[in-house]
Design a protein around this nucleic acid. Structure first.
Lengths: 339, 339
DNA sequence: TTGTAAGCGTTATCAT
DNA sequence: ATGATAACGCTTACAA
């Protein structure tokens, strides 16, 4: 086992002072190009890496980003869509030397708010993978001076990186119109308390209105919650109440669409022969549904990486101003549930 | 914003010395019960939490566990089964004040081995969610003095917490024999380079032999890899070569079983009418397969938590000896793919 | 351009 | 039982 290396041992080996080593490590201060090279070379040679704890202690920076993964759903990492965002975010920030730390509500026996936690841990920034916008603690956090970014919530004062929901809805509806040549469509939405479902619903309404497509009261159903069970209930309700059976049902998320598919199967309504289905998200499993699901693919890689990029720039260049909302384009993936 | 709290501010407020505060925080040293209570109460009141970086710097402990998530599969958090283990592990260790940090191979521009990383970060222990047992770097890490535990790999010198694979195989085969009343069975195995697949295969062989069940050469097929694509190929191969069509195919993992289901569908072989399928794992999506999958459920909660528990005790009581292998019972979940 | 030295907030070892 | 004080390994003025 190699013995412990510190800037002192390095300084001694190179007959320099610790301060100088520190300067080359932090690429600031004045160091001659020659010394710089020499130090860098030696460091690489012996595989030295600065002790984070010491650096953090002194510099008040931790190179750590706090992650908010809402506990409402309480499935955390098991949720495929958000895990995927997190995965991409993580890979990106790691390239810049940051690491992630999940924000936990209790530390050392003391129950604490998000903000308290972040201040105690001295995270450099906060990444909200998914959160609950009713959560006062979250709002307090967002309103604080700590840089933050979200891949989910959208609201005042928070920088969000989200999919272009309106574009997604138009893509789906254009496809129904131009390729499927249908115009009797129904819509199953997630709960409107989520801003993203609001956006999708508004776009849907706008499109329908513009095209003057047939709609009846039950052509739109809102689910109570987010999972497939909600979708199952919603489609049963819709089929029970609707007068003219739609040609296509557009479902606001794949999770919900999974339940819709199941509901239709139980009703002996065939997909895509009797009714065609289009989802939204392209969650990893959508391609394994039976039938495989046509859907609007969110660009998870881009969502996660863009959020990472923005957060890092907010941390490292606090002065530059950024737009509060970044939209990531989506695209249509055609599979078996439409034809 | 409350002002920053340190043991100094606390000491001052309570008219004590910083050292005393430190002592009560660390439950060691001599502090009168009275002072203890007083400090504890005050700390809770103002929501103080020790600055980790300072503590780490001084104590050489980080209360951090390094996580190895093999890069071979390269899907990391997106893999539902392992994410789930990680999630449970995480929840458990957090209750004891530990946090997780993913082991990354390059830090600050320097490419490094697992062991180097762990030493530099000074993690207290290592958790291998999933790893590649060919990986020299991993082996070096395991052989080091750093406490470690695995939920996947099994080998010399490593403490593993894994499912009782043999029990799982017996459960499935007993079910086939006693409930399904069948005895013409085939087996699709994952690659034997994974120890867990070895165990399952051995148990299968032993059972078949004991019962004297019919087997031909193609009654067992090994996939090349882990995903559903492998399963698809394997079942096509099996169906092409096998002489007497089996009543039941037992598949060594749900991931692979997904592909098997798809393969059979393409072959117009109905499940469960023509052939019944039993998987292994009970990954979160198995209940959404079409048909839903009968499978051997691994107890993910228990696997993750037991690994956590063991690792913490190895860290905190290095002297006590533990068995090198902990088996977690599995159970049979009957769904639509058998009848 | 480089060296010196004072912290950063803890813990741990001595004194008291 | 409590209080001073010296590390821990780094950053950052400031001095040389």
């Amino acid at each position: 086992m190699k013995d412990k290396k510190t800037i002192y041992t390095i300084a001694k080996a190179l007959e320099l002072s610790p301060g100088t080593i520190s300067k080359v490590l932090n690429q600031n201060g004045n160091v001659s190009e020659f010394t710089r090279e020499r130090v860098l070379k030696y460091i690489k040679e012996v595989g030295y890496v600065p002790a984070k704890s010491a650096r953090n202690l002194k510099s008040k920076r931790t190179f750590t980003i706090g992650v908010v993964f809402t506990e409402a759903l309480n499935i955390g990492l098991e949720h495929a869509f958000f895990s995927s965002l997190l995965q991409h975010f993580k890979s990106y920030v790691e390239r810049f030397g940051y690491e992630l730390s999940f924000i936990v509500r209790r530390l050392g026996g003391h129950e604490m708010s998000y903000l308290e936690w972040c201040m105690n841990k001295r995270v450099d920034g906060v990444y909200i993978v998914t959160g609950n916008d009713q959560d006062q603690g979250l709002i307090e956090l967002i309103d604080s001076h700590i840089p933050s970014v979200s891949n989910d919530l959208i609201f005042e004062g928070l920088h969000s990186v989200v999919s272009d929901n309106a574009q997604g809805v138009y893509l789906a509806l254009d496809y129904i119109k131009n390729d499927l040549k249908k115009d009797k469509v129904a819509y199953i939405s997630g709960p409107l308390k989520a801003k993203q479902f609001q956006e999708r619903y508004q776009a849907y309404q706008a499109y329908i209105k513009k095209e003057g497509w047939y709609q009846e009261k039950s052509s739109v159903v809102f689910t109570e919650s987010f999972g497939d069970t909600s979708g199952y209930r919603a489609v049963l309700e819709m089929m029970a109440l609707i007068k003219e059976r739609p040609d296509v049902i557009f479902v606001a998320s794949d999770d919900i669409a999974l339940g819709v598919l199941k509901g239709l199967r139980d009703l002996k309504i065939h997909v895509p022969e009797d009714i065609q289905i289009i989802g939204f998200d392209d969650m990893p499993f959508a391609k394994h549904f039976t039938p495989t699901l046509t859907t609007i693919a969110q660009d998870r890689l881009n969502l996660g990486e863009m959020a990472a990029k923005i957060l890092i720039s907010k941390i490292e260049q606090p002065d530059i101003k950024l737009d509060a909302l970044t939209r990531i384009p989506v695209k249509l993936i055609v599979r078996e549930s439409t034809q």
